[in-house]
Design a protein around this nucleic acid. Sequence first.
DNA 1: TACATGACTCTTA
DNA 2: ATAAGAGCCATGT
Length: 107
Amino acid sequence: MENEIFNQIYNIVRQIPKGKVCTYGIIASLLGSKKSARLVGYALNVSHKILPKVPAHRVVNRNGLLTGKHHFKAIDEMQVLLEKEGIVIINDQVQDFDSVIWNPILD
DNA sequence: TACATGACTCTTA
DNA sequence: ATAAGAGCCATGT
């Protein structure tokens, strides 16, 4: 991807530590355009063909809901990967969301 | 060139 | 508290 903004998105997502999650809005804010969360989602949508691999499963919407699970190879893959990292998910909803959220600004 | 779509979020009613 | 509308940016047709 020659587009710089896409690279920035992937770069940020790769910085999400294991066991933590981030939101589209936060990532968009780091890019400078806090309203461009849709663009973040679009970038992740095509991130499956990007190398090195992007941990897109660690990105959820503002409510901690796994809105993008249907875009993975297997629908449950996103949830499985997150649970593998210690995150509890019930009904596509991240439990204790405020505790697992990764805020790079506070980091 | 123009319109529609999308893994979103915020503001108003 | 719930629902609807507006902004945002890149892509595809």
